[in-house]
């Protein structure tokens, strides 16, 4: 690593720091609020008067928080793995194969993004109800197993993969499936990492569909669980509990992000074009 300290870099640091102060402020306020007692909370001040963990204690002692955590984790992991595999495979096929109907299929998949989820909730519920998927993991997961968003992302990135290296692999007698996995996939590692982060997050924070499709307390995901405490007619909104739960919800996200953002950077090394 060659380090060059220039005035230009220093200014960029300054601008970035100013940016993060503004961007992180509401987030830090949330964490601060989670450390307040309820009376302290209603002071609406930034810093807590004294550290009070009652929101966290309530979260762990009185709610099914750990179970919701597990549910969200299972759902997010399975859906993310499914999306990485299917979206990259479909995106690769759409970008690198020429066949009748390619355009039509791409438009079809893309157009599914144009119908708001809010409208699909009822048909999905009817389907789940007929198939006995209500209140199951599969019920929560099935609509998101291959997001059109991910297919589109992978198609855009797969298009950048040079045809030469794919053809070279073919001449070497590699199978098509293997070419996709061994040759094309490493080329778009940064995009896969980005897709993984975004899919994981989207499912970790998904609310409307999980709330409709789950019935028992055991099957709730984190956002559904948190929303139980956030309605004005629910008798005693415990804001400190909500803030505590939301803070705890972000932690695994940060870990997932840290893992995959390293992959994004490592992508350079793998494509063999390190500067």
């Amino acid at each position: 690593m060659k380090e060059k300290y220039t005035i230009g870099k220093f200014i960029i640091h300054l601008i970035l720091i100013a940016g993060i102060v503004i961007v992180a402020f509401p987030f830090i306020w949330m964490i601060m609020s989670s450390l307040k007692s309820l009376t302290d909370f209603y002071d609406f001040s930034f810093l807590p008067k004294s550290i009070d963990l009652s929101g966290y204690i309530y979260t762990f002692e009185e709610t099914g928080f750990l179970r919701w955590y597990l549910n969200s984790f299972i759902v997010a992991v399975v859906v993310t793995v499914s999306n990485i595999i299917f979206c990259s495979l479909i995106g690769y096929t759409l970008a690198k194969f020429r066949f009748f109907g390619a355009r039509g299929i791409f438009i079809l998949i893309l157009s599914t993004m144009m119908i708001p989820t809010e409208m699909l909730v009822i048909p999905w519920y009817v389907l789940s109800s007929d198939m006995q998927w209500v209140d199951s993991y599969w019920g929560i997961m099935f609509p998101g197993m291959m997001e059109a968003f991910g297919i589109f992302l992978m198609r855009q990135f797969m298009g950048n993969v040079p045809d030469d290296i794919l053809d070279a692999a073919r001449i070497d007698g590699m199978g098509e499936f293997k070419i996709w996995w061994r040759v094309a996939m490493p080329q778009v590692k940064p995009a896969i990492s980005a897709l993984a982060i975004i899919t994981f997050l989207g499912n970790w924070n998904a609310y409307l569909w999980p709330v409709i499709v789950t019935s028992t307390a055991e099957m709730r995901t984190l956002p559904v669980g948190i929303s139980l405490y956030g309605t004005s007619d629910a008798g005693g909104i415990q804001w400190n509990t909500i803030m505590a739960m939301s803070t705890l919800t972000v932690i695994p996200m940060i870990i997932v992000f840290l893992i995959f953002q390293r992959q994004i950077v490592e992508g350079i090394a793998l494509t063999g074009t390190k500067g």
Binding site: M30, L201, N205, S246
Partner: peptide, 8 residues
């Protein structure tokens, strides 16, 4: 982008 919208 990671934070739950209810609390924030």
């Amino acid at each position: 982008y990671m934070t739950s919208i209810v609390a924030i």
